[in-house]
Design a protein around this nucleic acid. Sequence first.
DNA 1: TTTTTTTATACAAACGTTTGCGCATTATTG
DNA 2: CAATAATGCGCAAACGTTTGTATAAAAAAA
Lengths: 332, 332
Amino acid sequence: MKKVTINDIARKLGTTPSTVSRALADNKRVSLKTRELVKKVAKEMGYQPNLMASSLRKGKSDLVGMIVPRINRHFFSNVISGVEEVLNPKGYSLLIMQSQENTDSEVKAVNSLMRNRVAGIIASLSVQTENLSHFQGVLDEGIPLVQFDRISNDLSGPKVVNDNYTGTYEATCQLLKSGYKRIAHFGGSELLKAYRERKKGYTDALLDKTGEVDKDIIFNDVITRDAGREMVKKVIDMGVDAIVCAGDYSAFGALEALGVLGVKVPEEFGVTGFGNEPFAEMIYPKLSSVEQEGREMGRIVARQMMDAIRGEQHTIEIAVPVKFIKRASSIR
Amino acid sequence: MKKVTINDIARKLGTTPSTVSRALADNKRVSLKTRELVKKVAKEMGYQPNLMASSLRKGKSDLVGMIVPRINRHFFSNVISGVEEVLNPKGYSLLIMQSQENTDSEVKAVNSLMRNRVAGIIASLSVQTENLSHFQGVLDEGIPLVQFDRISNDLSGPKVVNDNYTGTYEATCQLLKSGYKRIAHFGGSELLKAYRERKKGYTDALLDKTGEVDKDIIFNDVITRDAGREMVKKVIDMGVDAIVCAGDYSAFGALEALGVLGVKVPEEFGVTGFGNEPFAEMIYPKLSSVEQEGREMGRIVARQMMDAIRGEQHTIEIAVPVKFIKRASSIR
DNA sequence: TTTTTTTATACAAACGTTTGCGCATTATTG
DNA sequence: CAATAATGCGCAAACGTTTGTATAAAAAAA
């Protein structure tokens, strides 16, 4: 029941903890023979190093903290998965907390991670968050901070985002190519850069291809299914015949309402989403959407964290390529 | 850049670390006056306790390990979310690892968690896992183990599962009530109790209501969308007019194939799923399914863990109620 | 052989807490 | 007023590692 320590091993071998410690670390200062002997005995005794003691002494921990708005979101859980995939083989473990899109919880999460002396923090900001002092505190302590997806440029350090701009740019072009004339945008919160970029991709595409953009058919905060369902009814009356949505849920809501209204998609109306949620290709009609490679993003984030822990703290912004996936909802 | 410790606080106050430690812990052995003073100064200095040092000394950590097959699965990420919700307010943090449905990774995860001296481990077994010695080792060390969903009765300790049996029992009854005559079952792996229970719910319902069950139309390992799509073609030739699926993906595959074949659902054919994935009510026709309350399950799991950490290690199996949700795919 | 260098190991301090014990000082009791 | 009890605090050891320095033994050089 009692855990075996290096002292136990040392005692059994008539040597000292220091030698055992070095032997296990493959330090050349201890002879090959003893190194092997120690390792053998350690294994026999079922020795498991106490990482807390080790970290305490070394002043460096093997824990990496991660804060996401919600764990149970397709995109975020994929990112987590990718991060874990890279971090674990390197001997790091992931301490995960969710902010529930709420600044208070986010602050608590940061504090909790700091108390646990994590080697670094990976974070995607809650929508609510405006005051960033808790994260600034992390940086001030010299703890690496890697941001992803929901980032703030007011914080230094690596940032990894999707190429939101290109995603909606391509989606818009595709709708134009299909001959839709009056294309609206269902955007997200103005507060988040990700959504601002998506909107910009849409407007720039329109400007580039048609030379004009009508601000009256651009809507913020239409990201939920309900919002999409309601808003699409309004835009139909405005002569709109296609929408570029900043999310798949609002796009699905729109498709639902269109179905009820008897508006044919894609014949009379085009729709594109963003995120390529699993349901996108399961619904009818299949929804064109911008695929965000959450898993891959996670891997990139993790690599940035590894670099930062090693002391290479570059303040860069990496855009992970996205892929616009054409499906029935936007092709005619 | 240097972290402030209780020694720094003690020095500033002209007292000792022991007093500071006790003051922060609200120990009555130090006067109310000093307690308040210490806390005030601690806050001023931005003191954050070093949980590693604390845990090392106390021999108890605030970390709880969690192993799931895959983080990015709707059900699992929901459970994680629920666990986190309960554990965090109690001062525990979650160390999460994924086994990727692979025993090797599972073993590594267990070892990693043990090295981190977690207070307990929450686990859902990988399909592959047959040899349970890594988990037995956890129990032998006296570390609480709480299993959920994918459990093994060969390991002691609390287990939390869905009421799989009732879920498919009700689904089957509903299909019978709708007048379907020959009802097949698309099951999962025989190795997992969850799937065995689901199968039993189906067979028992048939026995109770019709007195007979045809083993020829019960299939194992039909859980993927592809498998469902293929298998449904076969069962149609066997005169089957409904299926109870042990998962939503195979059910969806079946619906797809039926659509292609021109078989009308629910008029000519009934389908039920299991899991109530988000897409279940977004597809056409909407899929009847058994809802598993992942979040709630997580909360229950977390509470069991709290009890176990407190030393109340009861070996019980808790069945979380499920809810059969009737939708178009099974009603006529 | 003696001296120097190398090699292998041991000693002890440190990381930041917690906690049993002891010692003053003050309050309570007979 | 002496004896006892209670209060508040300090001392020091301990948790399990790591690591700089010292020391002994062995190998190399003189």
